[in-house]
Amino acid sequence: MKHHLFILGFVTLAALGILSTLTSLKFKNHELPWKIIALYVGGSFLAQGVSMLFWTFEMNNLTVLHVYSLFQFIAFSAFFWTTTQRRAKRQSILIITVVISILLIINSIWNESLRDFNSLGVFVSNGTIVVYSVLYFFEVLGSDSYTKNHLIVNAGILLFMCESLVVFLFGNYLKEVKFIDQIGLWLTHAITYFLFLILIYWNHVKLARTR
């Protein structure tokens, strides 16, 4: 069964490779929010690659998760920072991003071990992104701005962040459970992640058509 999960990891890597190639095409023509999403996909591809490398050599790859969750938090915060037109919200996002990023680093160094899931860190960072995502929907409802161009990817972010928040929050408990019993959860995680990648691609195509 672990062998199947390993293959799934490589399939994810391939999917991320294709998507990062697609989103990096005509990168200069993208609007700033989409440039951030393209960079996020590229970064995810890199993180997945390193993680798979660790896994191949049977090394603990949870250290990558610590770095990746920080990168993901900064990337999505930057995305929501660029999509909002409210000055107060921008300033709040900036302050929250700096504070939480520092807390995540402190947490990874002194609190949660780099060899374990950073449950608390993921809970805080993903939770914040979920709040941003919901606020984004509210903002779009009351405006006619260009932020409407990123609705699909925002739906994907909301779904994926909610899902990974739960899975990684209980990551350390799952380590104690037999692999066969946790496979369903990791499969759900993989499906949600693929759905998220599909939504990014869909939004990318939609943006390319309107350009």
Binding site: V130, L158, L159, C162, E163, L165, V166, V167, F170, Y173, L174, V177, D181, Q182, G184, L185, T188, T192
Partner: peptide, 18 residues
Amino acid sequence: ENLTIYIALILFAVLALA
């Protein structure tokens, strides 16, 4: 099994909410 069922239930509840 119970633990994973609880986690799965929370997961689906959160996903349904999203």
